[in-house]
Simulated assay, not measured.
Amino acid sequence: MSRNKTKTLRQFNDDDLKDKLIDLKVDLAKLRSEAIKGTLKKEAGVIRWKRRDIARVLTLMNERTGGKK
């Protein structure tokens, strides 16, 4: 899976960003479970990038709402 660039994420609408966030969280959960089981070999560094992509999406969502919840 390719990494998400901020430029491309800004083109998404709010619903697409929410869907992307859900997908990223599911992927992160799978990677963490594989890491705990010990079956995660090559993709050990991917967890860090997934977390950063999640933060990037959340930041964009907060920018659009003006920081209000």
Rank of each mutant, 00 (worst) to 15 (best):
R56Q: 07
E63P: 00
A55D: 11
I22Q: 06
D19E: 13
L28E: 01
L31Q: 10
Q11F: 07
L9R: 01
K41F: 12
L58M: 14
K18R: 14
L24A: 05
T65F: 04
L21Y: 00
K41W: 10
D16W: 04
K30Y: 07
D14M: 14
L9I: 11
N62V: 07
D19N: 12
N4P: 03
A44R: 15
G38H: 00
R3Y: 11
I54E: 02
T39G: 04
R52A: 09
K25Y: 02
K20P: 02
L58V: 10
R64Q: 06
N62Q: 15
R56Y: 00
E43H: 11
N13L: 07
I54L: 10
S2D: 14
I47E: 02
T8R: 10
R64L: 03
D14N: 14
K68E: 08
K18P: 03
S2L: 14
L24C: 01
I47T: 08
N62M: 14
K25F: 03
S33G: 05
A35W: 01
I36A: 05
K42A: 02
L60I: 15
I36H: 06
K42W: 04
W49P: 01
E34Y: 02
A55H: 11
S33D: 11
D14G: 04
E43I: 01
N13P: 07
R51Q: 09
L17E: 01
L21N: 00
L40R: 02
T8D: 14
K41N: 13
K69V: 14
A55S: 12
N62C: 06
T8E: 14
A29L: 06
D27Y: 00
V26C: 08
K42R: 05
V57G: 05
I36E: 11
D27L: 05
S33M: 11
D14Y: 03
